[in-house]
Design a protein around this nucleic acid. Sequence first.
DNA 1: AAGATCTTCAACCGCTTGTTT
DNA 2: TAAACAAGCGGTTGAAGATCT
Length: 286
Amino acid sequence: MVRAPCCEKMGLKKGPWTAEEDQILISYIQKHGHGNWRALPKQAGLLRCGKSCRLRWINYLRPDIKRGNFTIEEEETIIKLHEMLGNRWSAIAAKLPGRTDNEIKNVWHTHLKKRLIKPNQMNSSSSDTKRVSNKSKIKRSDSNSSTITVQSSEPASLNSNFPEMDTTSASCTTTTTTTSSEFSSATNTGERKIMNMMNIKNEELEDSLENIIDESLWTEAGIDDETTNMTISNNELPSLQYYDPVFNNSEENLSFQPSTNFEDDGMDFWYDIFIRTGESIELPEF
DNA sequence: AAGATCTTCAACCGCTTGTTT
DNA sequence: TAAACAAGCGGTTGAAGATCT
């Protein structure tokens, strides 16, 4: 299918919008709604393509747009959501009323990304805050299994990989429950589901998990009708460190980072776990 | 003071996804 | 079922302002 590129038609204006154009667009939408974006500019008398009008309205002219600097809370939310969702700006924007995906994307690239790198650069010179030194992988090889568990009562399978670590210092249990048919039928979305479920901050463990795990994530992942449980067996735990291999930042987290060399060989799932020196968790047998 | 460089962010582009015919 | 179309998304660009030298 061949489609004429947007704005390629002769006579359509590009570039920054003038106040007059803004006013025309606002007036038209207030009066008629936007309806069909492609037809809008002609009906409104604008020499713009529909796509440009839509973008201008959504990113700038909408009455519910929140202007001005981002608050600390908003920035923290973006950082947290980006940790969970990656560059899915529209999904992040959906959690920040009045903010657009474009704005969030810009803020991320111009402010937040840099901020996340800087603390680690300082940390790297401090022995007690120096983070990740060990890494292991969990392989989930049985797609029909209904649970994924990481807990202290299991044999020290991790210890064999990291003999220098004290296995008594940390433990946790993370259990997800899903029906096998749903799981096995969604290889690619299942991986995201697990990633999201495990991406829970330590301080949040006290809260209801229903409040932590955003159902919309499952909807977006295509898994919206399954039962999900998650439990932490030890209140003092986990004392794990989260390590972001992209930005080299770290913080107190219970977090399991999907492998950057993620493998999806059939029904196999791999996850990297990053743990601070001297601490450990114990892994289940899958 | 002026030119160079950096930063910011609105807008665009190309692609994907969803819907209609 | 496939084509056509509309809307949405994320990456990228480039103009304008800020800062540096």
